Computed example of a mutant assay.
Amino acid sequence: MRSYVKAKDVHRHMRRLLAPWFVEQGWQKRPGYSCAFVRADSVFWVQPSQWGDSWSGSSMTLNLSGWNGRDLAAGRRILKGLDGDSRDAGLALEERIVSRIPEPPHDHYIHQFMSLPGAEGATFRQSFERAFAPNPGQWKPGCDTWLRYFAEDDLEEWALFMVPRLDRLISEAG
């Protein structure tokens, strides 16, 4: 059975997966932060969504900010800079990952919420449907792209997807 990765654990896993690349490129781990790296006047960090859940999985995105050694400037989402081939590959990966999210057991609370009458139940039914479907719209140029995950192996696949693209994404966003 696949186990859901909570946001605090996403930071730890992504640090393990991405740190070798960042260290090789001259970045240092930002003290006090689980998955953030500093180089010169830039900070890169992984941001898990606050809206994930053990029944639906979650998502994360990648950010880059200016840094003066003490304060962060407003962050930029670097995945907006993916090229067309990368967007196609990312959507294909999202489709595979979403297809592996296990449906919660029938006694899970989400099923009770979906059975509520009226608009409230409809909202939960729509959320449930979206949880088990990819979001092709977010892979269009200029969109705020979030990487869906459920388990640790999903994070590993996203790291394999990101590492060859990080240098270009960071340099274009910086």
Rank of each mutant, 00 (worst) to 15 (best):
M1F: 05
R2L: 00
S3R: 13
Y4G: 01
Y4L: 03
K6T: 08
K6D: 07
A7F: 11
D9G: 02
V10Y: 04
H11E: 13
H11T: 06
R12E: 04
R12D: 01
R15L: 06
R15S: 07
L18E: 06
W21E: 01
W21R: 02
F22T: 02
Q25M: 07
G26V: 03
W27S: 01
Q28H: 07
Q28N: 08
K29C: 00
G32M: 11
G32V: 08
A36S: 09
S42G: 02
V43S: 01
V46G: 04
Q47G: 03
W51V: 03
T61M: 08
T61I: 07
N63H: 13
N63K: 15
N63F: 13
G66H: 04
N68C: 02
G69L: 10
G69V: 08
D71E: 03
A74P: 07
R76Y: 03
R77K: 13
I78W: 09
G81W: 14
L82A: 11
D83V: 08
G84P: 07
D88P: 00
A89M: 13
G90V: 10
G90W: 12
L93C: 11
E94A: 11
E95W: 09
R96N: 13
R96K: 15
R96E: 15
I97F: 09
P102K: 01
P102I: 01
E103P: 06
P105Y: 07
I110Y: 11
H111A: 10
H111Q: 10
Q112W: 09
S115W: 04
P117L: 11
A122G: 12
T123A: 12
R125T: 04
Q126L: 02
F132N: 01
F132S: 01
A133K: 15
A133D: 06
A133M: 11
N135D: 14
N135Q: 14
P136W: 15
W139D: 07
W139I: 09
P141W: 11
C143Y: 09
D144T: 06
T145C: 14
W146C: 08
L147E: 03
L147V: 04
R148M: 06
F150I: 00
E152P: 00
D153V: 03
D154S: 03
L155F: 05
E157H: 12
W158E: 05
L160I: 02
F161G: 08
F161Y: 14
F161A: 12
R165A: 09
D167K: 14
L169E: 06
L169D: 05
S171T: 13
A173W: 08
G174F: 07
